[in-house]
Amino acid sequence: MTAALRRHGWSYLFVLPTFSLFVLFTLLPVAQGLVLALQDARVTGGTFIGLANFGTLADDPAFRQALGNTVLYATVVVAAQVTLALVVASLIQPLGARSRVFYRALFYLPLVNSAILVAMVWRWIFNPNPFGLANAALGTLGLGPFLWIGSSDQALLAVILSAVLTIPGGGVVLYSAAIGSLPRELYEAADLEGAGPFAKWRHITVPLLRPTTLYLVVVYTILAFQVFERVYIMTNGGGPNNATITIVQLIYSTAFQFGRYGLASAMAVVLFVMAIVVAIAQFRSLRTDVEY
């Protein structure tokens, strides 16, 4: 042991600060989170109650609503984001290098802002009054006014629209880099066959970008599962009749407003499992990719 320390002391010194902080504030908390999920932990400690918290969740209409909203939000938003990123990156690619740099920056700029202030603007845009911008814009088409965040039917739609209406700049950059590194020979061969630009895109570009697509689907899905600030700000933490409640919003209120830490930890475990399932699904489809 001491010999190892003398030989490798520097290596351990180099990893020590990061690794000890990682153990204390990530590794232990993950383990403790799993334990808390099996406890009836209230403001002060808790007793072991097995899987009872998960039974409570299964019967809890608010949690079911949160789960359904989160999955619906993630499905629509991720489908839109990945499609938009692919289309925009494909449009940018044939342009000159300077245009590419310009457009990547243009599409990334809106994303440097915090979820909080973005949600504040969307709340202002989707407010239910005639002076709300969304209502005014639709009003010129003879539609509305809509109640948006003031209505249990439309609040989730407003939250989803706020996410869908922004071009996902990160995805554009990743797709753009991936398209740039695709082998040119395939396109030259397709040119010889007389394939048009759309046919080349459809039959060469899109299939070859599959690894990037899968990566983006996974990352965007896991991020979408964690949607919180939009709901917290746009709809005061859940909207009318819990119309926009999401899992993280419910974790926050269950733990830090109602002191039911065990139950909230069980919700966090559900979220964790959802993230793992998505990651495994990606791994699987990448593996089948190799097979043909």
Binding site: T26, P29, I222, V248
Partner: peptide, 24 residues
């Protein structure tokens, strides 16, 4: 082992550690 532990937590949503970190 250390690096594997680090990588294995990369996909853990931050909210999973929120309550335990609060306790710590």
């Amino acid at each position: 082992v250390m690096f594997w532990l680090i990588v294995s937590t990369l996909t853990v949503p931050a909210q999973v550690t929120l309550i335990p970190v609060f306790f710590i």
